[in-house]
């Protein structure tokens, strides 16, 4: 069981991700944007961060950069949720320090398969 931070401004995506993860026995911390996510990451040491890219206030790329600057999150896996139509975002995310990505649309099973790989 891992502790996972899910950051997404869309309530339905957040709900789905969170539900799938909880269903698989993980602890989930939810956040609605980058600023909220950063705060949550500082307050809870999580084993994995899943973040959307396009968000108000602080986007996913900026969040990844901030997280990588925190000693606690230097090596923590960070996955971004990105759409197929935004390949440049993957590149940007990688440069910011993302571990990898999950391409939208995905279903809960695909999500779990991917995070299981990362969590080992």
């Amino acid at each position: 069981m891992a502790s996972i931070l899910a950051v997404d401004d869309s309530a339905s995506m957040r709900q789905m991700v969170s539900f799938a993860l909880k269903n698989a026995g993980h602890n989930v911390v939810e956040a609605v944007d980058g600023v909220d996510g950063l705060k949550a990451a500082k307050a809870n040491k999580v084993n994995l961060v899943i973040t959307d890219v396009n968000m108000p206030n602080m986007d996913g790329i900026a969040l990844i950069k901030e997280l990588r600057n925190l000693p606690d999150y230097k090596f923590t896996p960070i996955l971004m949720l990105t759409t197929e139509s935004a390949p440049h975002k993957k590149q940007e995310g990688k440069e910011a320090g993302a571990t990898g990505w999950i391409v939208k649309p995905f279903d809960p099973d695909q999500l779990l398969a991917t995070i299981n790989k990362v969590l080992g």
């Binding site: 869309s10 339905s12 396009n54 968000m55 108000p56 939208k104 649309p105």
Partner: peptide
């Protein structure tokens, strides 16, 4: 903000199986 809203609708509609909506929103996005 407008882009983000369209982007979210597209992402959500694709995820939740409303492919016509997703496809339509793609052009707007």
């Amino acid at each position: 903000a407008i882009f983000r809203a369209a982007h979210s609708i597209k992402g959500g509609s694709a995820t939740f199986g409303f492919s016509e909506v997703a496809e339509f929103t793609h052009g707007m996005e």
